[in-house]
Design a protein around this nucleic acid. Structure first.
Lengths: 196, 196
DNA sequence: TGTACATCAGTGAACGCGCGTTCACTGATGTAC
DNA sequence: TGTACATCAGTGAACGCGCGTTCACTGATGTAC
């Protein structure tokens, strides 16, 4: 028996509400402290309905990465590749899109920044894995021959810049953006110039 | 009435046990998820005895920063200043001392890395405040005229390097250390040379 | 077409459990004189 | 010096509460024929 599109959509809607509710609460109280009942309450469903979507909060956390973080990183990688292909500055494009993401979805970005260095090894591994694609994209788009770890360091600065932007007044984000481009550029540029 | 040194010492001993127990648990499960009873159990005292030392877990968390993180950062600042004063490389000195701290007290450093970008705004503010002293020390010790935000970025890389070292095989920490010196140097060096 | 059956997201009641917190007490130690 | 009192870290019992989880049920929707 196959489900109808309408039922699937409705189920997906509630599942998404649970993910968003968790992000909302995690942004201020931390993902680690959240309980199943808390997430369900915030999402507007009964506690027992939680189990229709996830086995437990751990499974929901995993879904946060695969359903929300992964598309975001994929988009940033696409932005980098598109910029590089059209002769534009991939670094600036990625930073600007990242700052737009901070404005669009601060809760998701707080989650990424928090769990990237957080106590949960599974989150750390998953996020590092995701971000390695962005590292690679920035690496190939950078002029000259910079080592891989320099591109990794640039992504680390990007994450920190996102964290700073999350706390900053929106008007102060322009300064953060410029400083971020400056420091990332230092890491992604071979001072000896293009001598490939 | 003043307390005797012996009683003070004993009280301090239990207080320290609570702080260490919390760090131990926080390293794997996250500070945010910890409860008062959990910390007391790990420290080997009755739950009610917790209140003889801290009002709640929030007060204990604050003490983690002031009692443990602050001295650590102070030591790193001292290392930087001492190296600079004796004509040695402050950057290398700080990185090496940081790596030693990873080996000495991984739980404390996991806490610092986790809460630096974590969901608790009070921790973020406290840690940024602490680390600004290290940023300043590295800034004045760096040759040429680099902007302040470049020194801040270097400290961000240091924190990330600490996080990587925490997860790495001890034999792989040498590589991390060298890459860290390399990338931090890029940020702390003015490519135009010393033209003060 | 209508009718009988299957699926399944959502739910309320109920459970046992660990939580934070209060309270009164103990016993070791310090102070007064 | 001895004796009476004060301080205070540690404790066990007890509390009310919210937690995760189970269960049986509802009702809307899909399928079979």
């Amino acid at each position: 028996l196959r489900e109808s599109p309408e039922k699937k959509e409705e189920k997906e809607r509630v599942r998404h509400a649970l993910l968003r509710a968790t992000l909302r609460l995690a942004a201020t109280h931390g993902y680690a402290s959240l309980g199943l009942r808390e997430a369900a309450r915030e999402a507007g469903i009964a506690p027992t309905s939680f189990y229709r979507h996830f086995q437990d909060m751990g499974a929901l956390g995993l879904a946060l990465v695969t359903d929300l973080v992964e598309p975001l990183v994929r988009e940033l990688v696409g932005v980098a590749q598109q910029a590089a292909a059209s002769g534009q500055d991939a670094l600036v494009a990625v930073v600007e899109r990242s700052m737009a993401a901070v404005a669009d979805d601060p809760e998701l970005l707080r989650f990424v920044v928090a769990e990237y260095g957080g106590a949960f090894a599974s989150f750390r591994a998953a996020l590092r894995s995701q971000l390695s694609a962005l590292t690679a994209a920035l690496h190939v788009a950078s002029p000259g021959a910079v080592p891989t770890f320099a591109a990794e360091a640039a992504v680390v600065l990007l994450l920190d810049g996102v964290g700073r932007a999350l706390e900053a007044d929106p008007t102060a984000r322009g300064v953060i953006k410029e400083q971020l481009v400056h420091t990332m550029r230092k890491l992604l540029t071979n001072p000896a110039g293009v001598r490939a």
